[in-house]
């Protein structure tokens, strides 16, 4: 007799497996970013993985927790990858370290480590360096496919940034999107990066690592918001396609806003969370000071999670009302 208790069968799903699947699903978007932005992406990713893993180990040691199990759950790697894909390539190493410290030490372990963080660690790390060093973080290199046709190494504004700037200069959308930097759909390079993130995200959906509720509601709301404004003022408003395939939209929809720890618990809650992220993001992109507001939008909705959880708890079997 081993003192086992029911249930005697357990599913094969584990936290490390979930995290590993997220890492696998990030492969296409990582590859795509690498192809368009060069080896700077690799150095970013490697340094961030190193920093995040080291900080995770240090924090676990300080908190007297099992370091090996903490590293084996791979959650720090996921955070590192998300940071590496949202920060521009070839940042100075110390900036990456600052981002990692904010993400792992402050946003995650100060709150109690895995599962306890109210805010998305990667977004906290990203925003900390974005706010503190806006010039470094806004500076993305000119996207060049596999290093070919790279005119110079001069940095350029991202499509969202450039749209915002040129609209302020009273150019029309038609003029802006006619420029070669705008590629086929939503900006050279960026459109492919977003499509790659979408592909990885769909695989995660199929593997049931994430549910449709957050990405579905978020992308639909974002598309609807873009469409509404675009329908009335097509000259000064980016199209829904640009909205969906530029900046960090797809990465956020499938990999960031779906973070279960800092997200809403119930299915209805997840839908509300997704709608909220989309609305905040759209508002900030359209009227705010930053070109892409998605990180702010995620953190803002993180703060709303306890409230959403309270409002959207499902009705329990045999009860007339929802639990309060």
């Amino acid at each position: 007799m081993s003192g086992r208790h029911a249930p005697h069968w357990l599913s094969r799903n584990t936290v490390p497996l979930t995290m590993q699947r997220v890492i696998i699903a990030l492969a296409p978007v990582t590859l795509c970013t690498l192809l368009w932005f060069g080896v700077g992406v690799i150095s970013n990713l490697l340094l961030l993985v190193l920093f995040c893993a080291a900080l995770e180990a240090a924090a676990l040691t300080l908190r007297q927790r099992d370091v090996r199990a903490g590293l084996a759950d791979c959650s720090a790697i996921v955070t590192a990858l998300l940071l590496g894909l949202t920060l521009p390539p070839a940042l100075p190493w110390w900036l990456l370290l600052v981002a990692a410290v904010f993400a792992i030490a402050l946003a995650k372990h100060v709150y109690g480590g895995l599962g306890q963080n109210p805010f998305n660690p990667a977004m906290v790390g990203y925003l900390a360096v974005l706010i503190a060093f806006p010039d470094d973080v806004a500076r993305w290199p000119q996207p060049a496919f596999a290093g070919m046709d790279q005119v110079d190494a001069v940095s350029a504004a991202t499509p969202l940034d450039s749209i915002k700037m040129q609209l302020n200069q009273m150019r029309t959308m038609a003029e802006i999107t006619a420029q070669p930097a705008f590629g086929l759909l939503a900006g050279r390079g960026w459109e492919w990066i977003n499509l790659a993130a979408l592909g990885g995200g769909l695989w995660l959906l199929r593997k049931q690592v994430i549910s449709w509720h957050v990405p579905g509601s978020m992308l639909l709301t974002l598309a609807a918001a873009y469409f509404l404004l675009f329908a009335f003022t097509p000259a000064t408003q980016p199209s829904p396609v640009i909205g969906l395939l530029s900046g960090g939209t797809m990465l956020a929809a499938f990999f960031i806003a779906t973070d279960p720890v800092s997200g809403a618990a119930s299915d209805t809650g997840k839908i509300i969370f997704g709608i909220g992220v989309a609305l905040f993001c759209f508002g900030m992109r359209t009227w705010g000071a930053y070109p892409d507001g998605i990180a702010f939008a995620v953190l803002l909705m993180n703060t709303a999670v306890p409230l959403i959880d309270r409002w959207t708890a499902p009705r329990i079997y045999g009860h007339r009302e929802r639990p309060r």
Partner: peptide
């Protein structure tokens, strides 16, 4: 298996 923290996956 060792018990890991809840990640609120739902």
């Amino acid at each position: 298996a060792a018990e890991l923290p809840c990640i609120r996956c739902g």
